[in-house]
Simulated assay, not measured.
Amino acid sequence: MESSEKSNRLFNTDLLRSFVAVIDARSFTAASRHLNSTQSTTSQKIMRLEEAAGVRLVDRGRDGITPTEAGARLLGYARRILALNDEAAAVMSGAARAITLRLGLPEDFASGRVTRALADFIRQHPNTKLEVTSGLSRDLNRAYLQGELDLVLVKQHRGEARGAMHWPEPLAWFQGAGHALDECDPLPLVAFPSNGLYRTQMTAALDSAGRRWRLVYTSSSLAGLLSAIDAGLGISLLPRRVVGLGLDEIPSLPNVDAMEIAIHQADPNTPFVSEIVQILADAVGK
């Protein structure tokens, strides 16, 4: 009987939801705001979960709250349990027939494995409507802040806004294979439109290094930028993640601090949101 009660306490969804929130926010304070709770209540729930599990689940360090080895193992199960719980609640209440999720994605994520995973989600939840908007991160973030999107994956400056989850986005300089454009004076640049991501960092880094530059090509499309770089029109500062074969990295140009990828969600209790967040997290982590 004692073993059965311990198992039930371990998989208590309220405790698991607090655990996931603390790990994602890396802070008891931020997680408590996210949960509309108090820091002491959230801390007590983590302690109850640790007591039920019989192991320590979180570490408190200078970089915030991180999962222990046991906590990392539990985290994946917790997300799956919460997703299934939310789905069951939605189906039983009839909410699944009326749910519309509005998702915003940058262009480089709105294809490939993310699209396939979202298609699988729709097949599994045919009564849930998923509206996906693709665009520049600044436009997606503006729409999210105006309440036009429920969930967004965006690129942002590190620490700009605390998201539900976030990852570093290392940047590097690239040019087309066989094009020694880094030797040009001024440097020909390929960039997103004014105020677009990476453009300010790119020109500021060159100005600080005393390198002259000129803008030769502008596009709001990542595919357009990659095509221009490959053709030898100019060089650009881009995430290493999005650059495939055919482009050469330029190590001689100044280093630029990494950006970050963040997931922002309006209401974590909306049915199926946790499943979409996991799909996005899997895509970023690969």
Rank of each mutant, 00 (worst) to 15 (best):
S7C: 10
L10Y: 10
R17K: 13
V22P: 06
R26T: 10
R26E: 12
S27T: 03
A31K: 07
Q39V: 15
I46C: 06
A53E: 15
R56M: 04
L57I: 08
R60E: 12
G61W: 00
R62E: 13
D63R: 15
G64F: 01
T68H: 05
L75V: 00
L75Y: 15
R79F: 04
E87D: 11
A89S: 13
G94V: 10
A95F: 10
A98P: 03
L103Q: 03
L105K: 03
E107D: 04
F109K: 05
L118F: 04
L118V: 05
A119F: 12
Q124I: 05
Q124D: 13
D139R: 13
R142A: 14
A143S: 14
A143G: 00
A143V: 00
L145E: 15
D150K: 01
V154A: 08
R158E: 12
G159N: 00
W167H: 03
W167G: 05
P168K: 10
P170K: 05
P170V: 00
P170F: 06
A172T: 04
A172N: 07
L181M: 02
L187K: 06
S194Q: 14
N195P: 03
D207P: 01
R214N: 08
V216Q: 01
S219Y: 05
S219L: 00
S220G: 11
A223K: 10
A223N: 10
L225P: 05
L237V: 03
L238P: 04
V242S: 09
G246C: 07
I250Y: 01
E260M: 03
I261P: 01
I263D: 04
A266Y: 10
P271I: 03
V273Y: 08
S274L: 15
Q278K: 11
I279P: 02
L280H: 04
A283L: 00
G285S: 15
K286W: 08
